[in-house]
Every structure is written in structure tokens, then in C-alpha cells.
Design a protein around this nucleic acid. Structure first.
Lengths: 146, 146
DNA sequence: TTGGGTGCAAACTATTTGCATTCGA
DNA sequence: TCGAATGCAAATAGTTTGCACCCAA
């Protein structure tokens, strides 16, 4: 946490955890993938592809826009991160994959977690024929009080 | 319903209802706004801007892409339709504004209503400080059974 | 060596905007 | 008439793709 990996180069606990995480999900560890994973998993957070790109390039290891997009898509497919679709203009990548929902401030664009205990669904609806459940997203849209 | 207004030009029940609807929301009735409203409110449905554009141009009255986007945005702001954000690639406009939620088939892109009675939230979470509730969206993502 | 990963730039798509023209009260 | 609405095209933004190059196994 708190930016250890921003200051110290080379192997340390966080780096090792990241390597293990990639390995667990069958993702070949490359420099940029490790770098992107380190940014995402430094703490639970919501980042857009653009924000990830910005942070990648602050550090030594550089990744192109295409690589960032490809990597985030890969991580999402492999289940390391969750895509959060709340804004038609951009996708957020959530490094917290445990069950939870979101507040989205439509004025500021701020995305915040809602603990899953605070919000419980009563009665899963009958699914249409021929489909299976993928996930359930609950978005509580809020606006800044004037 | 069933295309009455596609065949008969001039005033009829549906046209009058559309005129009244626009007036109620303080929207100046122009030809293209009436046309777009007629398409949307022919029945409860989910249409993307592109689909609306396609349908507009099948009929006599034409509207440009910009006008369709502007009009849909206007309708959403004025509360005639609800924007449904489930796909990062496009916004759907839902002509059903009563409380309900959605199934979204991530394979086919099909959006279907879930009756609000079938899915009840237990416990509204405490809102963060300084914000007020706008709306709550529940999206049940499903995929086609292989 | 050799296939997957990366970088770059170009392509693409949905949406927005600027501005001149046209419409409707 | 006169301001609002429209149409067109160009601009924008996020994301994807094609292809040559490079690196790690």
C-alpha cells in the first residue's frame, strides 16, 4: 500500500504479489503488464484507461496507449479487475473484485464503493429462457447537493 | 401502436398524445421532435440513437444525425425518456419511465425490462455527504447459454 | 529461433459542436 | 419578423486494429 512500489525499484512484497497474481490467472508477466498491475492493485480503486496510462508514464516503465487498453481488456477477461460501466464516455476498471456496488456522482464523475452488506437484493428475478447469469450491477446515481 | 401513425398522415390519437406529451414537458413541437417522439412512444422499447435515426428516415419526415442526438438528449433531460447505460459503446433510450430494471444480454446486446416488483432492494445505503439521490439502476447481465 | 507482446499510427464509432439556413409562432 | 430549431460537416474522445519490431523462453 501507500506507494511503496513507487519509491523502491526491484522485488519487494508488492511486486511478488503482482507476479503471483498474473501467474494465477495464466497471464504472461511482461514489464508493462506488471507495471499496470502494480498501479491497479496498489489499493482498491477505480481508474479509467486514460488514468492508468497517465500513471504508467510517470514511472520508469512506459507503455503505449494500445498496450494499456489491451492489458486492461485482458485483465478484465481474466477476472483480475471488474469493468464498471456507469458513464457512456469511459469505462472504469475496479481493482476490487469482491461483491459490492457503486455510487456514481453524475456531477463530479466520482465512483465510490457501496459495501455489499448495505444493499441487498430481495428476490432474484427469473431469467429469460436460454440465458445464464453473468453478474448484477447496482448503481446508485447521486448528484452534488446545490 | 402497431404502426397506425406510419400509415396515416395528420392528426390521430397517437399524434395528439405526442403533442400533449411535448407540451407537458415544455418542449416546442417541431416536425422532427414529433416524429422522434412518435417512434419512441409507439410502444415501450429500448432504442439506440442510431436505431432512432434509421427509423426516422424510413418515414417521410427526415432528421439529421445531429438533430436526433440533440432531441434524444433533450428528451432525457426533460424526463420523457430514460437513458440506459449498459454498454460502453452506446446509450439506449428507454421509452418506459416507470420504475423498473434491466436484463442485458452481453452476447446479443438485447435489453429487456425487469418488473420492479420482481427485484426489490433491501436497505438504501447511506449516501456520502453532500450528495442527493438521483436514481438507482440495477442491471442483471446475462449471457446466452452455450 | 520464434511466437507472443508491444508501440505506433491510422482507423473507427458514437457523440458533440459551430455556424449558416430555415422554420414556426 | 425573429429567435429557436435544424442540417451539415468538421471536430472530438474513447477505443480498436494492422503491422513491423523486439524480447524472453
Amino acid at each position: 500500500m501507500q506507494g511503496i512500489t513507487d519509491k523502491i525499484e526491484g522485488p519487494n512484497q508488492h511486486t511478488q504479489a503482482v507476479n503471483a497474481l498474473l501467474a494465477q490467472h495464466g497471464i504472461a508477466p511482461t514489464q508493462q503488464r506488471r507495471q499496470i498491475a502494480q498501479i491497479l492493485f496498489a489499493r482498491p480503486q477505480h481508474l479509467s484507461a486514460d488514468q492508468v496510462l497517465g500513471r504508467v508514464n510517470q514511472n520508469g516503465i512506459v507503455a503505449s496507449k494500445a498496450t494499456v487498453y489491451n492489458t486492461l481488456g485482458l485483465f478484465a477477461r481474466k477476472g483480475l479487475v471488474r469493468e464498471v460501466i456507469v458513464d457512456p464516455n469511459k469505462v472504469f476498471y475496479d481493482s476490487n473484485i469482491s461483491a459490492h456496488h457503486h455510487f456514481y456522482n453524475i456531477d463530479t464523475g466520482l465512483l465510490q464503493d457501496i459495501d455489499s452488506q448495505e444493499l441487498v437484493l430481495q428476490g432474484l428475478p427469473t431469467l429469460p429462457a436460454g440465458v445464464e447469469l453473468d453478474s448484477i450491477d447496482i448503481i446508485v446515481r447521486v448528484r452534488t447537493t446545490k
